[in-house]
C-alpha cells in the first residue's frame, strides 16, 4: 500500500534561517501520528507547507490516490482535495451559530455560484445533527459560536474538520488550554477519526501524546530526528539530548 501523504526532502528558509531542512515524511491511509519537537523545530512550518500556506524552496509533496502534487495547488484546492487543518488557536466563526459553522464545513460544492444556489436539505440537516452529537454540541446548535467555552470551540472546530470529511487531518496542539475531562474527550475524538482517515497531531504535551498511543515523529531543527513508538523515541539518546539539553 502506498502512503497517503508523501513528503520528500523538502527545505525552506526564511531570510537565511532554515526552518525545514531536507525533511521527509510519510503517512498511510488510516493512521494516527503525533509529531513532537521543541520550539522552532519546524512543526508549524511543516503543516504550512502541506496545507499550501508556505511554498518550500525544494522537495516534493504528493498526496492521495491518484497522486496529486500539492505544491501546484492553492490552499483552498488542497483543502478540497481532502486535507483538513486545525489551527493552534481555536478559530470558529464566532458571529455565526454552531449550526451555520457546521453547515459551511459540510463537504458540499464550495464554488460561489453553487453556494449561492444552496438550499438547506434533510440529508445535510441530519449530517449536522450527527456531527453535533459526536462532538457533544447537540444542545448548542443554535447558539452563537462566540458564546461557547474554550473547549467547546475546540470541539466545534474538530467537528467542522470532520464535516469536511478529509482524508488527512492535521491538528495543531488540540489539547492546549483544556481541562482534564476535555482532554479525554478530545483524545477519543481524534482516535475515532483516525479509524477512517489519516490524522497528524502536533503536540507539546507528552502526557497527551502518550494517551493517543500512536507512532511518534520527533522533529528537530527542521528534520526528522527519530520515529517510532513513544517509548522507542524517548529512549533515543539524540531525543534526550534535544529535550534535556535545551
Amino acid at each position: 500500500m502506498s502512503a497517503l501523504l508523501e513528503v520528500t526532502s523538502i527545505s525552506v528558509s526564511f531570510d537565511g534561517f532554515k526552518a525545514i531542512n531536507n525533511l521527509s515524511f510519510e503517512i498511510g491511509g488510516q493512521e494516527l501520528r503525533a509529531i513532537i519537537g521543541p520550539n522552532g523545530a519546524g512543526k508549524t512550518t511543516f503543516m504550512d507547507i502541506v496545507t499550501g500556506k508556505t511554498r518550500p524552496d525544494e522537495g516534493r509533496v504528493r498526496f492521495g490516490e491518484p497522486q496529486l502534487d500539492l505544491l501546484r495547488l492553492s490552499e483552498s484546492q488542497i483543502a478540497r482535495a481532502g486535507v483538513g487543518r486545525k489551527f493552534q488557536r481555536p478559530t470558529v466563526f464566532e458571529a455565526q451559530s454552531v449550526r451555520d459553522n457546521l453547515t459551511m464545513a459540510l463537504s458540499n460544492d464550495r464554488l460561489p455560484f453553487a453556494v449561492l444556489g444552496y438550499k438547506a436539505n434533510k440529508e445535510d440537516g441530519a449530517r449536522v445533527a450527527a456531527l453535533a452529537d459526536e462532538i457533544g454540541l447537540s444542545e448548542e446548535l443554535d447558539r452563537t459560536a462566540g458564546e461557547l467555552s474554550h473547549g467547546q470551540k475546540q470541539w466545534l472546530e474538530i467537528g467542522m474538520l470532520l464535516a469536511q470529511d478529509p482524508q488527512l487531518l492535521l491538528v495543531d496542539e488540540p489539547a492546549a488550554g483544556m481541562t482534564l475531562g476535555e482532554r479525554e474527550h478530545t483524545t477519543d475524538l481524534l482516535r475515532r477519526a483516525a479509524e477512517t482517515r489519516a490524522v497528524v497531531v502536533v503536540e507539546h504535551d507528552m502526557e497527551f501524546v502518550r494517551r493517543l498511543d500512536c507512532k511518534v515523529t520527533v522533529l528537530h531543527e527542521g528534520s526528522v530526528l527519530a520515529e517510532g513508538s513513544l517509548d522507542h523515541v524517548t529512549a533515543n539518546s539524540d531525543v534526550i539530548d534535544v529535550y534535556l539539553g535545551r
Binding site: 483543502a79 478540497r80 478559530t91 466563526f93 459551511m104 464550495r110 460561489p112 455560484f113
Partner: peptide, 30 residues
C-alpha cells in the same frame, strides 16, 4: 443564505475559511 455565511466568514477569518476549502478569492470577486 449559506453564501452570506461564507462571506461573513471571509470577513471574520479569511485564512480559516480558505483552509476549509472555500476559494476565498472567487467569493470576493463575485
Amino acid at each position: 443564505g449559506k453564501f452570506g455565511n461564507v462571506i461573513r466568514a471571509i470577513r471574520d477569518d479569511e485564512a480559516r475559511i480558505r483552509f476549509m476549502g472555500y476559494p476565498v478569492e472567487a467569493y470576493k470577486l463575485v
